[in-house]
Amino acid sequence: MLKSASNQVVFAGIRKILNTPSNVSSLVDLRDLRFGYGATDVLHGVTLNVPRGKVVAIMGGSGCGKTTLMRLIGGQLKPKSGLLKVCGESVPELDRTGLYALRRRMSMLFQFGALFTDMSVFDNVAFPMREHTELPEVIIRDLVLMKLHAVGLRGSAQLMPSELSGGMARRVALARAIALDPELMLFDEPFAGLDPISLGVIGQLIRKLNDALGASSIVVTHDVQESLKIVDYIYFLSEGKVVAEGTPDEIRASRDPWVHQFVWGETDGPVPFQVPANPYEEALLGAQGA
């Protein structure tokens, strides 16, 4: 699917033209990061770091603040307090220009791809190149075909996004995300709503592209089995806190009840089946008195 050796040369070459990689060992560094919408806190002090070249997964149930964390790293939200460094730069302190300069070195894959519906697949992948480089159209054409080839969709270059299946759209979005050879890739629920084959393809692509580009990746997901196959390190997030972390092997062997429940998908455990409420008897019998 991917001839990583030959592509690596091209990818690394373009990156040198566009920007110089920073020489910080951990690409993303969060320490005691807090964030909230208004009065309600979503994140209560998250500490994690992403080393260069690694694929890190952030897992947790729905609504535990995974996507929020992603948006904080991308600079779309500002934290209340704590340290947030990406490529050695403190994201909350950047102005718009600085933030945009930083974002050119990262890319984000949105949950449903977020392809531009008014452009063809080709133009979607060409979009970041046309916006940020002065490359002639001939070179952009070759680069786009290379990126599409890397995700196996060179044959679909002229299709419109509405003509793609969910899995194909995700792969096009992946091609677009690697268009400018990012140092950091953020994946927001890359496996959501995919059939098992597409899911496996996307998982392998994330791993291979990350290695081919020499980039680092953060995968936000709740798909445990797929992530355990491809990632280097896993953080478990629950109610705005990191509750467990480790390599896939450590996670599989973990005796932690929370991790056990999550990994094996048990309905009851530290995360209760019932949403906290007043006692059952009271709710049913008390209603007569009211």
Partner: peptide, 25 residues
């Protein structure tokens, strides 16, 4: 409708994350 739909499908966010200002583009 067009801009609203682009917002609803996160296209504007995606653009913003690509360091392309959606208001300008």
């Amino acid at each position: 409708a067009e801009i609203g739909l682009m917002k609803a499908t996160e296209q504007l966010d995606a653009m913003d994350m690509m360091a392309v200002n959606p208001i300008a583009r």
